[in-house]
Amino acid sequence: MNLIRTAAARISLLCIVLLLLSACGSKQEKDASVPTRSFTHDAGVTDVPVKPLRVASDQHMGHLIKLGIKPIAVRENMLKEEWIPYAKLDKDILTGIEDLGGFPLNLEKLASLDPDLIISALPNNQEQYSKIAPTVNIPYWSKSFTTPMDKFLKIAELFDKTAEANKWIEQFQKALTSARDKIYASGKLKEGQTVSVMAVFEKNVFVFGPNGAYGGYMIYDALKLKPTDKANDLRNKDMGSAELSLEAVPEYMGDHAFITVVNEAKAKELLESDFWKSTPAVKNNQVYFYDSKIFAMDDPYSLEAQLDVIANLLTGAK
């Protein structure tokens, strides 16, 4: 009886091994039959599917959806991004997208979803993701991207959707021109007046220049509003920004100032200071406060929302 049981167990184990080998062989055959092409990205060159069908990404969900690509899984924060309420997406567009946790993505769950392409925003995740599927590194911020449009076009290139990306860029440029005309027509901001962009954090204030975060790109590069000389000097700095003490803020203030508050206690200290109250922008009621969250990302949906926020503040629209 024991011999029979032992033989049966061995046969069962052999069957399992054969099934696993068969599955691996089938996957290799399937992978070998999928047409691929070389794609150059920030971490090197990777052979990717010509037509990826099961995409997982730890960043850039807004870019993907704007291109008509629904990822199978994303990082948890992507499903709660600030642009989502602004975008007015079809109610089912995000349904079924799996939550893979934070950085790095949950590798076990990621593997179980059998992606055929992974997009990574951080180079240090490249190696472990690549063991699961072809992985490309497209960072949140990179010197290879002069503007957010460059990043959008790079992601579009990955999916052979450059024409679709250019169509949206063209439409957005028209929206920018229309918004700029309305801003100057409102009379609130006059030609030649300067604008500053700042964010109040826990310890100090950051000022942003052209192509900078927290509205720097939208205000200076997209809407082409005029930066102060000091803000203009920040164009080639990392993230287009510089850290200031509270006392240095007036030196960077333009005729108009956009301020986003990340830390309310520090903002209160700034707003109650005599040097703040003495600046022309404050005296002329030309300081505009806005929510930082919608300015954290640079996908097409976020840019559309940012344009509405800035244009409404400068035209008095609701």
Rank of each mutant, 00 (worst) to 15 (best):
A56R: 12
A121S: 03
I155H: 10
Q193C: 13
L100A: 06
V74L: 13
L153G: 08
L158A: 07
A165M: 04
P148W: 03
E304F: 06
D274M: 10
N232L: 07
V50P: 11
F159I: 12
A133P: 00
M61D: 12
P85R: 07
S12D: 12
P210D: 02
E82I: 02
A87D: 07
K174L: 10
A317G: 10
L244N: 04
D150E: 03
A163C: 07
G216E: 05
G316E: 15
A73Q: 04
R10I: 14
A9T: 15
A199F: 08
P71K: 11
I65M: 15
V287S: 07
K66I: 06
L20M: 11
R75N: 05
S33C: 10
S302I: 15
M297V: 15
G68S: 06
D255Q: 01
A8V: 11
F103P: 00
K190I: 07
E272S: 15
L94R: 04
S278K: 15
F206I: 05
K109Y: 01
L20W: 15
Y129Q: 02
L270S: 08
L223Y: 05
A56N: 14
N2H: 10
S112Q: 08
K151W: 02
T6A: 07
I84R: 02
P148D: 00
S273P: 06
L100R: 00
L105K: 03
A305L: 12
F103D: 04
I183C: 12
D42W: 03
V17P: 06
L314H: 07
V74P: 03
E202G: 09
K174I: 03
E108R: 02
I65Y: 12
T146K: 10
K151D: 07
I259N: 00
T95R: 05
Y252W: 11
I155P: 10
E202I: 09
V249W: 01
I72V: 13
Q59K: 05
T95Q: 09
V282K: 08
K167E: 11
I310G: 12
N106H: 06
N312A: 14
A213L: 04
I294R: 11
D291A: 15
T279P: 14
E127M: 05
T279C: 08
L94W: 01
Y86A: 03
P35Q: 14
L107I: 10
A73V: 01
K266F: 02
F152S: 06
D114K: 01
V48Q: 09
E264F: 00
E157M: 07
L303N: 10
R5C: 02
K80E: 09
A156G: 04
P115H: 06
N125G: 07
F201E: 01
E272L: 14
A8L: 14
K266S: 03
E81I: 02
I119G: 02
T260H: 02
K131A: 03
A305D: 10
P300Y: 09
T194G: 12
S292D: 08
L117K: 01
D274Q: 11
T95Y: 06
K268A: 05
Q193I: 13
A7D: 06
E269H: 08
L307A: 12
I97P: 07
L3W: 12
A199N: 13
V55K: 11
L307I: 09
K188S: 08
K318T: 08
K51R: 07
L244K: 05
A156C: 03
N77Y: 14
M61W: 06
S273I: 13
S12Y: 12
K30F: 14
N236L: 00
R10P: 06
S196N: 15
